[in-house]
Design a protein around this nucleic acid. Structure first.
Lengths: 256, 256
DNA sequence: CGCGATTTGTGCACGTCTTCACAAGCGCCT
DNA sequence: AGGCGCTTGTGAAGACGTGCACAAATCGCG
């Protein structure tokens, strides 16, 4: 590693000291590390080794060290990482030093649950507005927030600085909602509707599809079934595969 | 391509004609293709080109063709893919020819929403049981199903052939529930609790963490902000990055 | 019957991610 | 002060995933 990140950086609010450009795979793991670190801090640990933290986060320790090295982090050889410092660093990189306002559109089954989900508040986000297109839902109070009509988005955006929108509508409505969100300046969207959104350049979309996750599991079930069905007989080019299919996002068989 | 899949395979129930071992990245995209194909079928299309299908699924067309070639699929050069046949093939590979029974543990905020989610039923799954550890919740009827106590799992498993479990409990309870699921023979788990599960070998775990998704978006927000903050000034090794960070799971800027 | 338009299937090169293995650095104990 | 054990940070190699570009195959039409 060449130039170190300025040590004081995370503490200073408002300053923008040039984020390192992290590999996307690393970014996706940082929140996991952060959660594990908070657990460690709560249980009184002041330092943690890469071995310990990687176990708590469910990843390889070398991977963890490389990830942390990307953000120029300060571990101490022979000792480990300072838990509090690392939390501060990761929260800074993830942009969690400011609590971000999120607009949630679609207060159906899933939207209701999201509106009441503690995890958002406890991890750096604040639901700033609940919106729905159905007039009969407008005015309903959920978790202390009044549901407003989705056409009020411009008003909401004027009150708050919205950067992130969550879409929890049926698929048919999702694209239109996305357009409305983009129109009021939202540049990041989390989409729970089972459809592809098209958005202008510079807007990030992440998708979560619950049924897809199950279908992926179903594939592995099917595969396991077909493997046990033929003990070692089948003449196909399908031999045992001992540790078999290690998946990208899937943890399989983590020993205790 | 060498050996073709036996043409009749998908139709024959019970037969297990040796699944090809697909790259995990391909498996993760198949459900997306499947959804797009169902849409196409509903709107009357009988065939579709790789170009058309890839646009509907939001991926590169070469990637789509390679994915489909892995499962030995039958496209016709000069014409495209037969929509109905492709649906049949993908559903077969994903193991969706039988409707799989799913046990849902944890009927809190999120569990409630999942219990009522149509997407499961419409895409090959059936919620076979709702379970919770809280006695005051047991007996409640949600969407036509009675909530049973989690300790009844052995009974439930005896009634139904459970292969997939969904955990929607608080993090503190998740590991214990996972153990109970594994004990009754569940070999695939979808975990919504923000924690790492340890399970014996041969059990697949997939994790969905809503807050993590937001934190990843937050990073990109932070990054975008830091880029626009320094127009082209900063002396750092951080130059413009035109099309910048193309993400793995993230779709950015798909033109219409 | 042959030709051109079209679209699939895939070889190849490139970039990204993962993992091993080890040198460099730090603290503690004697 | 010096040495020893532990842990980080990283070079290098390999596995994996992606996308271009083109040959092979099919259909329709003259």
């Amino acid at each position: 590693m060449s130039q170190h990140r300025h040590p004081g950086a995370p503490g200073r609010a408002g300053a923008v000291p040039a984020l390192p450009d992290l590999p996307e795979a690393t970014v996706a793991r940082l929140p996991e590390y952060l959660r594990a670190l908070h657990n460690l801090a709560d249980s009184g640990h002041e330092t943690v080794s890469s071995e310990g933290l990687s176990a708590a986060a469910g990843v390889n320790s070398a991977k963890l060290r490389k990830d942390l090295s990307h953000l120029g982090s300060y571990g101490t050889r022979g000792v480990g990482y300072d838990v509090a410092l690392l939390i501060e660093q990761i929260e800074y990189v993830l942009g969690l030093t400011q609590r971000r306002a999120v607009a949630l559109v679609g207060v159906g089954n899933l939207g209701h649950a999201l509106a009441g989900y503690d995890g958002f508040a406890s991890r750096g986000f604040r639901i700033a507005a609940l919106l729905d297109a159905d007039p009969s839902r407008v005015g309903e109070v959920i978790n202390g927030l009044v549901v407003r009509h989705v056409d009020d988005l411009p008003t909401v955006a004027a009150e708050e600085s919205l950067a992130i929108g969550v879409i929890a509508t049926p698929a048919a409505a999702a694209q239109q909602v996305a357009d409305q969100l983009v129109a009021v300046g939202v540049t990041s969207i989390l989409n729970f509707a089972p459809c592809v959104l098209s958005v202008p350049e510079g807007v990030d979309v992440r998708k979560v599809d619950l049924a897809i996750e199950l279908q992926i599991l179903s594939f592995h079930e099917h595969r396991k079934a077909s493997l046990t069905a033929l003990p070692a007989t089948g003449g196909s080019a399908l031999t045992a595969l001992p540790g078999g299919f290690a998946a990208t996002d899937t943890q399989e068989a983590i020993g205790t």
